[in-house]
């Protein structure tokens, strides 16, 4: 069995991601992994053996498949999908034959989608993971985003089983947070404003963080001090010196010295990652003890 895909078109920040590179924080490397873990896992469950994913962004991806047949699962957000020019639903499972052309173009919602094959990419795990870490340039495909002309070989074939896929949740509603490490640096009035005021997803978002617009109305009166640097976890909402909130995502710096008012709970971080620029966001505080009951994936 041998097979490969060749990238014909790629939006920005298309990366290889597996579950993540855990256990490396003390060495200065955050875990990376899928921006929408639920979509990644959903895609994987549809196959008896699933390799690392290609995580693509809103502009989508085109590739040509060559070699012995494999299956591919496409999931996450809602994208437009064509196989050899013919429209397919989303999410979808497709049996690929040599010469097939997959074309993924922007759809109705989400920032991130996933491709998982019934084989593994022939890429070496770095420190136990094939995830690309965009801040350090480690892992994945030579530590970088995929570009036109890149060729990824697939190895270790397996038999296929088909399950039904459910589309990703487009549930609106507030994003739940626990109060953060430095919540006590903000007055009660500012914490209340943080919950009451709608903010919006800005155009400045990537795998490291998502900046929010509208933070000035909340944090304009706060004095933002630089603090002793401390551990960051995915979902932390840190407030920059000018009052801009930035939600730290999967490729976060392992430590940071800006105050963090709150942390998006793991169960809501996937949904948050899929919110497009311009989307209004409202935060709701929950007690840490409730988080497990609300779901602990991520």
């Amino acid at each position: 069995m041998s097979a490969a895909i060749e990238i014909l078109r790629a939006g920005p920040l298309v990366t290889v991601q597996d579950a993540g590179r855990f256990g490396m924080l003390a060495h200065g490397i955050s875990a990376s992994g899928p921006m929408d873990r639920a979509a990644f896992v959903t895609a994987g469950r549809a196959l008896p053996i699933a390799g690392a994913a290609i995580e693509f962004t809103r502009a989508g991806l085109s590739f040509r498949f060559a070699g012995d047949p494999v299956q591919v699962v496409l999931a996450g957000g809602a994208f437009e999908l064509k196989l050899n020019g013919h429209h397919h639903d989303w999410p979808e499972i497709i049996a690929l034959s040599s010469g097939d052309l997959i074309d993924i173009t922007p759809g109705s919602f989400g920032n991130y989608g996933y491709l998982r094959f019934s084989q593994e990419f022939d890429l070496p795990p770095i420190l136990g993971s094939r995830s690309t870490n965009t801040i350090t340039g480690l892992g994945g495909f030579y530590g970088r985003s995929l570009q036109v002309g890149d060729r990824l070989s697939l190895v270790d074939g397996s038999r296929f089983a088909v399950e039904t896929l459910t589309p990703g949740s487009r549930d609106g509603g507030s994003i739940r947070v626990t109060w953060g490490l430095h919540a006590d640096h903000f007055s009660g009035d500012i914490r209340q404003l943080f919950l009451d005021r709608e903010m919006t997803i800005s155009t400045r978002l990537n795998r490291m963080g998502v900046r929010l617009d509208g933070g000035g109305a909340v944090f304009g009166g706060a004095s933002i001090l630089s603090l002793v640097s401390d551990s960051i976890v995915p979902g932390d909402i840190q407030i920059l010196g000018d009052g801009t909130p930035i939600v730290l995502m999967r490729d976060h710096q392992p430590t940071g010295g800006y105050p963090r008012i709150a942390t998006i709970i793991a169960a809501d971080l996937d949904r948050f990652a899929q919110l497009r620029p311009g989307t209004a966001v409202r935060f709701k505080s929950v007690a840490p003890a409730c988080v497990l009951k609300l779901g602990s994936r991520g």
Partner: peptide, 23 residues
């Protein structure tokens, strides 16, 4: 406990929430 990370003045313990809770 999945990971123990010393910082300048603190220690992070990352835990599996299905095995143990914060309290």
């Amino acid at each position: 406990v999945l990971e123990i990370v010393p910082n300048l003045v603190s220690v992070l313990l990352r835990f599996e929430a299905t095995v143990i809770d914060f309290d």
